[in-house]
Structure formats: structure tokens, C-alpha cells
Amino acid sequence: MSQSAETRNLRRRPPWPLAVLGALGAAVFLLPLAGLAKRTPWRDLPELISSDVVLAALRISLLTSLGATTISLLLGVPLAWLLARVDFPGRTLLRAVVTLPMVLPPVVGGAALLFAFGRRGLVGEPLNDATGFLLPFSIWGVILANTFVAMPFLIITVEGALRGIDRSYEHAAATLGASRLTVFRRVTLPMIGPSLRAGAVLAWARALGEFGATVTFAGNLSGRTQTLPLSVFVALESDRDTAVAISVVLVAVSLIVLVIMRDRWWTRT
């Protein structure tokens, strides 16, 4: 019955220029979804998305995007900590390099990965000589490509959080005898928890939608390296209905995750 002052204030009518422009901004996102929904063969949808090719692509997509998220957490959080907390030469440059994949065309990223990890690559050649292991055109290659484009989102989010938290709590923990690693585990990580989860979700979402670096570095081998976005691209050429169906699956999965995450984590401050 009685609403908070803030709620009632939010219900006031907005000024019309902001409302109109804001609504146009929303249309940029809503119209493509509407187009997709209109084109979707809803009746045949279950059959279309349960074909072997689609299920294999779904499996590879989930496996590789979750794998990339895990690696991003494992390596990205320590890297974010180094960038935020340690003053070393070249830090500014490293920070720029780390965020480069966010602005680089993914195809360029994929090509760079080939030159580093390909059969004749900087690291790939000695690795192949020593172990016979080849990253490109394997599921590991997909995970590496996903990690390359997704980890920057996690690093940026976590580094920002590390810079934003009140260092006094870390100092207090140190006066209690906690080593820097203990402080990190028991004070810093819990304090940046919400940002950590938000960063992980962003990275996961980016990995799930990854296309360019993957196709360049890992190819488009059905059942081995073909992810959902790649299968959409292939299906667009031959089988429009399947392409639309996969797109709907991608939209649905992403939307569900984003809505849930937003409610549970991002609104917590």
C-alpha cells in the first residue's frame, strides 16, 4: 500500500525528449529480436534444435564457453590483482594489451593466435615437436580462442573492483597477521564477490557468442570445433529454419542467464 519515497519518485513522468530518445535506443535492441521472433518456425522448433548437428554444436558451445570462463577466472583474477596492486615496469602497456581483444576484430585475434600457437607458430612449433599436440582445429583451440576474447571482460571488471574497494580492510587484515595471499583469499575476494560474478558472467556471455577468432583459429569442423554461432552461419547458407532456431536458442539461453544474474548479483551492492 505505502510505497517508498524512491519508488514514488521513480514513477514520476519523465521529460519527453529523454523518453523519446531513450525509447528509440531501446528499439535498436528490441526490433532485431522481434524480427527473429517473427521469422521463427515455432511449431518445428523442437525438431529443428534436436538435430544431431545442433546438439553437437550446443554441447561444444557450452563446454568451450564454460571452459574459457574457468580459465579466465583462474588466470584473469590474479592478473587483475597484479595490474591493480603491483607497480611494475610496463604495467600501463600490459593493461592496454590485455584489453586489446575487446576492440580488435576477432578475425585478427584468431590470426594472431595461429601465428603463436599454429603448427609453425612461435609456441606451437616447439610444442608440437615436443609433444605432438596441436591446438588449432581442436576443441582446445576453441577454448583458447574463447578465452582470448572473453578474459578481458573479466579482467576489466575485477581490476575496477580491486581499485574501488576500501584498502583499509586489507590493511586491518594484515595487522591481524594475515599474509598477502591470505588477505587476498579471505578479505579481498569476498569483498569483490559481486564484481567477480558479474565479470565471470560477462566473460561467459562473450565466449558463448564468439565467432571470428574461433573460425580463424579452430576452424569450423562439425562435431569438433563447430559452436552454435558457427552452426548458425553455416545453416544460414543452406537451411534458414535451422539457423533461426539455433539463434532463438542462443538468445533464450543468454537472456535467461543475464536476467537471473542481474537480479541475484548485480543489484547487490
Partner: peptide
């Protein structure tokens, strides 16, 4: 000697208790 090895206890004005 860094703070964690000094064995000097501190009580802070803002308490700085860990909220988690």
C-alpha cells in the same frame, strides 16, 4: 617488517570489521 609480521594489534576508528 611488514604489518602481518609485526605483532602489533590495531583498533581502528571505523572498526573495519569484515562484513562477510
Amino acid at each position: 617488517v611488514p604489518p602481518e609480521s609485526r605483532r602489533i594489534g590495531v583498533v581502528f576508528q571505523r572498526y573495519l570489521l569484515f562484513d562477510h
